[in-house]
């Protein structure tokens, strides 16, 4: 890669690579077939994504697809909430006010230095026992008003799981927010200091410099890592399965246990995640290339 002048070609490395990959595959197949005696049955697993209802003749979504939808909801709402947190905290992080800087710094360091798992457990425990009752989320979910009910259905799915969904979402957003804080901070700080000075020199106030000079330039620096963070968010959302949020990974565990088609379920679910994440990657790359082309 460094030496662009060298064309890729087949050589002894290929021999080593190909023979070890082939050897590995043969070993796996042999073990699965003869030693473990595993008989594959994919037909048993696919209906858990969706199946054809014989009576109505319609395709019906099943556990895995429903889990996937919850995962996507978590990711989309999560990126919005955590972007808001990230922008606010990122601005605090570079504020001239030392108190705000200290608070933002503590937030970032605390989140980034505790294991995601431990963070989620602590936070979920705190959230579900204290904050949720305080916010009145449960009441909202139990509300009789049909308008509220449909809203919840459309936005978050089953109202019974609403409070559970909201706690997972908040946990995840606060977690990712710390990373976005750093993205925002780095984006703003990447703007050369001369821009700031030129803005001040033509008499703009600090807020105006931020708004008309720094932020418009910072946005283009922040966008690519933010898009990346969205993909990370999709992946990280699998952790909230451990606090019983019924997203894709949670459903996979359920289906795995109930059907005992463990190999198929986990391979299928890994492929589902891969397809979702990788299409996001391709999409964001395409956007970036288009933005680069339309730029002067």
């Amino acid at each position: 890669m460094i030496r662009k002048n060298k064309k890729p070609r087949l050589n002894w490395i290929d021999f080593a690579v190909i023979s070890s990959v082939v050897g590995f595959l043969i070993f796996v197949v042999l073990r699965v077939d003869s030693v473990l005696n595993y008989s594959w049955n994919w037909n048993h697993v696919f209906p858990f994504v969706m199946y054809l209802d014989e009576d109505t003749g319609q395709w019906v979504s099943n556990l895995l697809l429903e889990g996937l939808i919850i995962t996507l909801r978590l990711a989309v709402y999560g990126i919005i909430i955590s972007a808001v947190i990230g922008v606010v905290m990122g601005l605090c992080r570079i504020s001239s006010n030392l108190f705000l800087r200290m608070v933002a710094r503590s937030y970032v360091e605390l989140v980034r230095n505790t294991p995601p798992l431990v963070f989620i457990f602590i936070f979920y425990f705190f959230l579900s026992t204290q904050l949720m009752p305080l916010l009145g989320i449960d009441e909202l979910a139990r509300s009789d008003s049909p308008a509220v009910k449909t809203m919840i259905w459309i936005l978050c799915g089953d109202p019974i799981l609403f409070s559970n969904f909201v706690s997972g979402l908040i946990c995840l957003s606060i977690f990712e927010g710390a990373y976005i804080t750093e993205i925002v901070r780095a984006g703003i700080q990447s703007i050369p200091r001369g821009q700031w000075e030129a803005g001040r020199a033509i008499g703009l106030s600090r807020i105006d410099v931020m708004r008309y000079v720094i932020l418009p330039q910072a946005v283009s620096k922040i966008a690519p890592p933010l898009a990346n963070q969205f993909i990370t968010l999709i992946k990280d959302s699998s952790i909230v399965s451990l606090i019983s949020i019924q997203e894709l990974t949670f459903m996979a565990v359920e289906v795995g246990v109930s059907t005992s088609r463990i190999f198929e379920v986990w391979i299928l679910v890994a492929v589902m995640y891969f397809v979702i994440c990788y299409s996001c990657v391709l999409f964001f790359n395409w956007l970036e290339r288009r933005a680069a082309r339309s730029k002067r």
Binding site: R9, S238, L242
Partner: peptide, 28 residues
Amino acid sequence: SDSISGRWLSTIYLELVRNTPLLVQLYL
């Protein structure tokens, strides 16, 4: 490296890891 299959293998590995959750990898 300048080996074709070497680049392919490493690229596939990187993309697989990057695009699936750690937890799902662990279950796998």
